[in-house]
């Protein structure tokens, strides 16, 4: 006897569908590279998952069809630059699936978000490739050339806005002198925001983590902006740049590695938001979503233990 609500496979599928808007926006600005990265990631994920489960002598079909590996792969693929060489996404996805998930015992047992573990691994190991973004729309052949290293991509690439701000600030400029707006990033964030709202409406995720995440970002960025608006970006930039909305609605909400109590989810989301801004502003990496999520993943057992709801009659 079960409810007619979504089952686990359907939940994973819904999350993948909800990513479509954000992916569409990314495609509009960066072109075919986005799609190719996703294809490469998904193929890698399935191959790795298949071989690993075979090695562990476990049934392959239920695990592949639950969609969790595909979801991790897609999340990683849209987090990395669309023109990163092919082996980046292959290595990253394999790392995410093997070290992020299977070595812990498969779906449900991983303490870390697999996609973010893969991302952090790539960013630390290959910082150059991981920070070179497409600067214009690439058609299919351009994208293939770029990803498979057939031609140089220098002409088509650049740093992200957050990276650029960091570099300029380091050169002694102040915020007012910089043009901090990025149409592409704003649209992509808007796409993920809408997709996220869809997930809440479909009851795939609850509002707690995204709301607390955004509150954390708003809180710290406004405090910093009040302290010195010459060197700290205003709140709206933090909200609409980088991986903010993707992180708030799709990454921090990964149920397996997130806190599960209602109160715990608020704390977890809020602290990720705080860490994201802190890492962006004071850290040496341009964006902080991956590290913030991974750091907070570690604290989940503690948060869960101390935020148990009051049991009836106690």
């Amino acid at each position: 006897m079960h409810s007619n609500a979504l089952n686990t496979n359907q939940i994973m599928r819904q999350v993948i569908y909800a990513l479509a808007l954000g992916i569409g926006a990314a495609y509009t600005f960066f072109g075919w590279g986005v799609i190719l990265q996703i294809v490469l990631a998904v193929v890698t994920a399935i191959v790795v998952e298949f071989s690993f489960l075979s090695l562990r002598k476990l049934p392959v079909k239920p695990a592949i069809s639950d969609g969790s590996a595909v979801l991790s792969a897609v999340l990683l693929a849209i987090s990395i630059p669309s023109i990163a060489p092919w082996w980046i996404i292959v290595v990253g996805t394999a790392f995410a699936i093997i070290f992020g998930k299977q070595l812990y015992g498969g779906l449900g047992n991983n303490p870390f978000n697999p996609a973010m573990l893969g991302y952090a691994f790539l960013l630390v190991s290959y910082p150059l490739q991981m920070t070179t973004w497409a600067s214009e729309f690439l058609n299919l052949s351009q994208a293939i050339n770029a990803i498979f290293n057939l031609t140089s991509v220098d002409a088509l690439s650049g740093a992200t806005q957050l990276d650029e701000v960091k570099t300029q600030l380091a050169l002694g400029k102040v915020i007012n002198e910089l043009e901090v707006h990025s149409i592409s990033q704003a649209w992509i964030n808007a796409g993920f925001l809408l997709g996220g709202l869809y997930l809440i409406a479909r009851k795939v995720i609850t509002w707690h983590i995204p709301a607390a995440f955004i509150a954390g970002i708003v809180f710290v960025s406004s405090m910093l902006y009040l302290i010195d608006h010459q060197i700290y970006l205003p709140m709206q930039n933090h909200l609409m740049l980088g991986a903010t909305m993707l992180g708030a609605f799709f990454i921090a909400t990964d149920p397996v590695s997130a806190s599960t109590t209602p109160k715990g989810r608020l704390i977890y989301g809020f602290l990720i938001g705080v860490l994201v801004v802190v890492i962006r502003v004071f850290g040496s990496y341009p964006d902080g979503v991956a590290f913030a999520v991974l750091l907070m993943n570690i604290t989940v057992p503690l948060i869960d233990y101390y935020t148990q709801p009051k049991v009836f009659g106690k």
């Binding site: 609500a5 089952n7 686990t8 496979n9 939940i11 239920p62 639950d66 969790s68 498969g106 779906l107 449900g108 047992n109 609850t206 149920p255 397996v256 997130a258 599960t260 109590t261 209602p262 989810r265 709801p309 009051k310 049991v311 009836f312 009659g313």
Partner: peptide, 17 residues
């Protein structure tokens, strides 16, 4: 299938476990 810790069960639990 495996538990994905989605928390639907703690919303449904009448004694708040």
């Amino acid at each position: 299938q495996e538990c994905i810790r989605c928390g639907r069960c703690n919303q449904a639990c009448p004694v708040d476990l």
